[in-house]
Design a protein around this nucleic acid. Structure first.
Length: 495
RNA sequence: GGCGCGUUCGUCUAGCGGCCUAGGACGCUGCCCUCUCAAGGCAGAGAUCAGGGGUUCAAAUCCCCUACGCGCCA
């Protein structure tokens, strides 16, 4: 065993639900760790005290659990949401708010070494600075005015009650080169970078600083994250250098766009992972589809069974350009996975949706027989109730179907005559039904369609549905005959 | 505004100098199967590889410029 094995991490801010983009980032980190038999760490970046919530932590943990992205270190799934999450892993704590002494320690180290300094500029001053730079068409960067403050000047400033943030002293010459696993070498000129804030006036660390300290302390080997962080990377790299640390490898993933080409957001519809669950998508569909957004194999394989995704995933196959989220393909893929699963599993997974539709009381076996007839048609778990409800509830006749099929010439007579015939049919099975009804067509000199269609509408209320004879068998003689009658009553002119 | 990234069918993508008259998948169209809807099978439409310059015997593939989109600085 190599002493340093792969360690990846997903580090969300708990300021909302887990969205599609975050899920994709988590997935890629998870796939990479599993592929290389490494560890996948979940770290909660909750330094934004105002926006971070416990509910968000719960939502994120729940979403990842549903997606099947299990983590080796990080918060333990709490049964009852709320205050304290327990944690697992040798590098705890995994909540940044519980790690503040660690940041403080390295902050003072940098300060003592003169690699960072206190800056007393107020937001107003900084804003003015930025505005002036814009006006003069210069890049809006901090001008370093607090860089050379003497001890006496600092004391005066502090005596006057000014709060200080801490800035990192960036090199003024040369370039910082990011060696990215997806993008290759990306070079940034240091003179265009600025002395950035690493600790706010409150003393809390900024994103770039906390991220570097944690990734180092947690011995992260590959940082796989969204494209929006590429511009942060040269700053982080300089921090690693100043602290004398070996940086991890970086991989920046392209963004996920909505259909209009803008970054995927709430206005494009569902973006929360949990929304997809409630719409009836499967976690394996989400994993498979999300993997294909920004990654592919050489042969453009679409469907990955079981652990195949883990076995085949690599960073080389990652795309540099952004990908547009396509709901149609997602839907197709979900159908593929549903078709491939066993009937038993489908019924299990559909149960919450059946309960919701008031079909929770239907005995399991009867439900399974009905679902079996529609299995290959299901694209979303949420569709199941609507596909089978007429077996168990009163028929809701679709007016269009009634007009078009039941009011067709001869339809009522068919129901009347066939009803009489079927009343004596024993056994009432798919086989006997088919031969008897076909014989009926011959006897009456009718085309099969002239019989099949009215029967279908009479018993199910609609024009589409399961295979006719299977459907009749499952309904049973009583229901079939009753519904023939109901349908005929429907055709009587309103008295 | 500066810097950075990107640009192959409507969409996801294969392609890493000759195998490309650009392949696969979703979607779309038609046909077959068929009691409906699906599923499945077959066929088809759909990309002058963002545009323009180079390099090369040869470029979607390498270099430069332009345009557009996106990200970061906020």
């Amino acid at each position: 065993m190599p002493s340093v094995s792969v360690r990846t991490r997903f580090a969300p801010s708990p300021t909302g639900f887990l969205h599609i983009g975050g899920a994709r980032t988590a997935l890629f980190n998870w796939l990479y760790a599993r592929r290389h038999k490494g560890a996948f760490i979940l770290r909660i970046e909750d330094t934004d005290e105002v926006r971070s919530t416990h509910e968000s932590v719960d939502a994120i943990l729940g979403s990842m659990q549903w997606l099947g992205l299990d983590w080796d270190e990080g918060p333990l799934l709490s049964k009852s949401a709320g205050e304290g999450w327990e944690e697992k892993g040798a590098y705890a704590p995994y909540f940044q708010m519980r790690r503040t002494e660690k940041y403080r320690k390295f902050l003072s180290e940098l300060l003592a070494a003169g690699k960072a300094y206190r800056c007393y500029c107020t937001p107003e001053e900084l804003d003015a600075m930025r505005r002036r730079a814009m006006l003069e068409k210069r890049p809006p960067r901090y001008d370093g005015r607090c860089r050379g403050l003497t001890g006496a000047q600092r004391q005066a400033l502090e005596a006057s009650g000014k709060k200080a943030s801490i800035r990192f002293r960036m090199p003024e010459e040369g370039a910082t080169v990011v060696s990215d696993l997806v993008r290759g070498e990306v070079s940034f000129e240091n003179k265009l970078l600025q002395d950035f804030v690493i600790a706010k006036t409150t003393g809390g660390p900024t994103y770039n600083f906390a991220c570097v300290v944690d990734d180092h302390l947690m011995e992260i080997t590959q940082v796989i994250r969204g494209d929006e962080h590429l511009s942060n990377t040269p700053y982080q790299l300089q921090l690693y250098r100043a602290l004398g640390w070996e940086p991890p490898k970086f991989a920046h993933l392209s963004m996920i766009l909505g259909p209009d080409g803008a970054k995927l957001s709430k206005r494009h519809g569902a973006t929360s992972v949990l929304e997809y669950r409630s719409q009836g998508y499967l976690p394996e569909t989400m994993r498979n589809y999300l993997a294909l957004l920004g990654w592919s194999t050489h042969d453009s394989q679409q469907l990955f069974a079981g652990s195949e995704l883990i076995a085949k995933f690599d960073l080389e196959g990652c795309q540099k350009n952004p990908a547009t989220f396509d709901n149609q393909k997602l839907l197709w893929m979900n159908g593929e996975y549903i078709r491939k699963m066993t009937l038993e599993k489908l019924v299990d997974l559909a149960q919450p949706f059946l309960d919701q539709a008031g079909l929770g009381g239907v005995p399991r076996e009867g439900m399974a027989s009905a679902v079996r007839l529609e299995h290959e048609k299901v694209k979303l778990l949420s569709e199941v109730p609507g596909l089978v409800d007429f077996f168990f509830k009163d028929v809701a006749y679709d007016p269009k179907a009634v007009d078009k099929v039941l009011r067709a010439p001869g339809a009522e007579k068919v129901l009347e005559d066939l009803g009489a015939v079927l009343a004596g049919l024993e056994p009432f099975s798919e086989k006997t039904l088919e031969s008897r009804i076909r014989a009926f067509c011959d006897e009456k000199n009718l085309k099969t369609g002239q019989v099949f269609h009215p029967v279908r509408v009479a018993v199910s209320g609609r024009t589409t549905g399961p295979s006719l004879f299977h459907m009749l068998e499952l309904l049973g003689k009583d229901k079939v005959l009753n519904r023939f009658e109901s349908a005929r009553r429907l055709l009587q002119p309103a008295a």
